[in-house]
Design a binder for these strands. Structure first.
Length: 253
DNA sequence: CGCCAGGCAACAC
DNA sequence: GTGTTGCATGGC
């Protein structure tokens, strides 16, 4: 995929077809540009420079042959936990604090005192719980250096639910998963893909059928959907600035 | 001030 | 399997 462009065709037989959902995502990409969620440069590689606002490239999985792939995967997984129900700015402060404290490796993190860990990540909110989650993640993580985790394995780790598990599979390990999060559910409902509220799981499965089975594509799709949810498709939608009004069935648009 | 932010576990039913 | 609640900081 070209930087700054989000265009993909789902192959069907010998022809290439574009689903309505893909057309919608291309429109979001044109409106918002490349999102650059993950992987960002590893913290070690950028010497503490704040990663907030890094938007030069599309989001994509960690390449398996990347020099710092192992470190990048762990940082992403830690970030996914820290970002739960929290603004990304707070999660970023917390991950930088972990980096500066020298805690950002599975071996170190697994052994840190939980109260100290909580104090270090306090900017991410719900910090006592997240300290416990991060220790569970760090303890389980070394096994995944040799063999990629399954979804079921990830879900057994305290603090990893459906969405975090799928984000780890997608952004860390390049598995093509659609993230059926709250934004995706809201947007797909308002644009008429669903006629009623759907669960995380049914959204994940249904949307995947409409999109390329391509991790790079799905990585940027998730970022675009969340950006649209934050900017326009809020609980109280800001339809005036919405790039999808012509697709939207919601009465308020 | 209230609402929301790149959710999850525990529990009830 | 669905619905509710506590967790907690920071930005607007």
């Amino acid at each position: 995929m070209e930087a700054g462009r989000f265009c993909h065709r789902r192959k069907k037989g010998h022809a290439y077809v574009s689903t309505d959902l893909m057309v919608m995502l291309e429109r979001l990409s044109a409106a918002y540009g490349p999102q650059g969620w993950w992987p960002l440069p590893t913290l070690a590689g950028i010497d503490g420079r704040n990663r907030v606002g890094y938007r030069a490239a599309p989001s994509m999985p960690v390449p398996s042959d990347a020099i710092n792939a192992s470190q990048a995967r762990f940082e992403i997984a830690v970030g996914a936990v820290l970002a739960q129900n929290t603004a990304w700015t707070g999660a970023t402060k917390a991950i930088l604090a972990l980096h500066h404290a020298g805690f950002l490796s599975p071996g170190v993190l697994a052994g840190i005192d939980e109260t100290l860990l909580g104090n270090t990540i306090h900017a991410a909110g719900t910090f006592k719980i997240k300290a416990r989650y991060l220790k569970a993640l760090a303890t389980a993580w070394p096994a995944f250096e040799f063999e990629q985790p399954t979804r079921t394995q990830l879900l057994t780790i305290q603090g990893i639910g459906y969405e975090t598990a799928d984000c780890i599979l997608l952004y860390c390990f390049g598995q093509p998963v659609f993230i059926g999060d709250a934004y995706a559910r809201r947007i797909l409902l308002r644009t008429g893909f669903f006629s009623s509220q759907q669960s995380y799981e049914s959204t994940r499965r249904a949307a995947a059928l409409l999109l390329p089975l391509d991790a790079t594509y799905l990585a940027e799709a998730h970022a675009l959907i969340d950006e649209h949810g934050k900017r326009c498709c809020r609980a109280k939608p800001l339809c005036k600035a919405c790039p999808l009004t012509r697709y939207c069935l919601d009465a308020r648009c």
